[in-house]
Design a protein around this nucleic acid. Sequence first.
DNA 1: TGCCTGATGTTCT
DNA 2: GAACATCAGGCAC
Length: 186
Amino acid sequence: MEILSRLSAVDAAKRLLGCELIRTFGDGQARVRIVETEAYDQTDAASHSYNGRTQRTDVMFGPAGHLYVYFTYGMHYCMNVVVGPEHYGAAVLIRAVEPIEGEELLSERRPKQGIDLTNGPAKLCQALGVDKRMNGHDLAKSPLKLELKPQLVDKDITTATRVGISKAADEPWRFYITHNSYISKP
DNA sequence: TGCCTGATGTTCT
DNA sequence: GAACATCAGGCAC
């Protein structure tokens, strides 16, 4: 976990691919694999931290390995993993995950099947039961834990431009696992 | 299959 | 008061 504080947002975005999240519910636990990420840091015009530290972006400037959840478009949550050194505003957006275990628990919270369950940032938050109450949560602890896995080799990682933003949209800071069907927008 | 649009809260100007 | 790191449903092709 501490390794995340030493990585840039881009390196951390690649490092987090293939890692797993373990979500504990009252009635069991679900495990998912991260298959798509996007890097954001304070030098990046598309990042929430670009305009400095505010009440909303406060956790982005906090210690790495915590969860930054924000609300957008009036009805959706998206989750980020805070990375980089403390007081530096960087985070990695989780865009898509692949269920490994407890998929039925996820579809209880999001009544969809197959890739539509978690192939988008707001979708996976709904499926994992993540909302703003989880903002600032430490990912070393239950009920949502991040489990690091060995870093993927470069050939398994595809680089692309980011999605759904208007500023700095050409930066190739989106990463996903090659040949994975859960990607939000290949 | 693919474009268009409505829903709707929070943040910042 | 506008912008927004979105999704789902409707309608046209």
